[in-house]
Design a protein around this nucleic acid. Structure first.
Lengths: 157, 157
DNA sequence: TATTGTTATACTCTATAACTATA
DNA sequence: TATAGTTATAGAGTATAACAATA
């Protein structure tokens, strides 16, 4: 191992602790990492969750639409859908109206799986935000959403 | 190109927009990306900033201490320090008391550079948080710090 | 025997380019 | 000619393992 001894006494520099941008970067990375671990333990990934969530809200999407709504690259989505299809959670069918397109839909098994993945996601979030009470969590969510809207009009409802 | 046509009309799923964890992940990734771009335009990286910030607050650190205070792997820090040293911003000297150690210190040029990098960092943050007023920014920072403390005792002062 | 700094390597996530089949 | 999906590839960022010098 390269870092055999944990040194909890060494603090991050004050300048960075004072930076909201730094905290955002660090916390975003941390919860992403935690999510990956939690989902992996269930034989899934957070990306499976996001794709199933899209399909649950608007069934029979085309692959391009799914990718766009999640900000994923279309070529990267292919592998994800392969996994979900192999697991029997989704279905890909050619669009008769435009045979280039694939219409993707959620199977009943996919809906069940989505419930599981939602529980995992909620568990990770709940633990991560454990230092905040209900009001503070709401406030944090509101602020983050405002930031998201400022930087990406797709979050403006 | 794989995504030739921008489709701003396609919104992320409501389920994910409602998730604080999802927003944290997305926004953390976004601002990290923006930082990388802004620093790259100045021939530097956000990591140069963090290392210089550590040295400005506690000079003559050892490489292990720098790595620990930033949560970086020691082996990864080596390359960063090589770049900073080559640019004439820092100095590495063997510790006479323990010749395995390198004492790293900030040169005057490094202090100047740090000022530049601080300005870049502030610019990125300011733009990213543009949707929030001063009070809201303070509130957001406070909440993020609380979350950081809950998940990493090193943020508890 | 253990630790510091170093080098080399592997792995994940993502972006890009090129291919096919359809339009 | 352009688009949807696919495949292959390459890059950045990071983690892991092994090494030499020193304790």
């Amino acid at each position: 191992m390269t870092t055999p001894v944990q040194k909890p006494g060494v603090k991050p520099p004050y300048e960075l602790v004072c930076s909201t941008a730094y905290l955002l970067k660090r916390l975003g990375g941390k919860i992403k990492e935690r999510s990956l671990e939690a989902f992996e333990a269930a034989g899934a990934s957070p990306y499976h969750h996001t794709v199933l969530a899209v399909l649950a809200e608007s069934p029979r999407e085309t692959q391009a639409t799914i990718a766009d709504s999640l900000g994923y690259d279309r070529s990267w989505l292919v592998g994800l859908l392969d996994e979900l299809e192999q697991a029997g959670l989704i279905e890909r069918k050619r669009d008769p109206a435009d045979r280039r397109r694939h219409l993707v839909s959620l199977k009943p098994e996919g809906k069940q799986k989505l419930d599981d993945l939602r529980a995992i996601s909620r568990g990770v979030e709940d633990e991560f935000l454990g230092g905040l009470d209900a009001d503070e969590r709401k406030e944090l969510h509101e602020l983050l959403l405002q930031v998201a809207r400022h930087n990406d009009p797709r979050y403006s409802s």
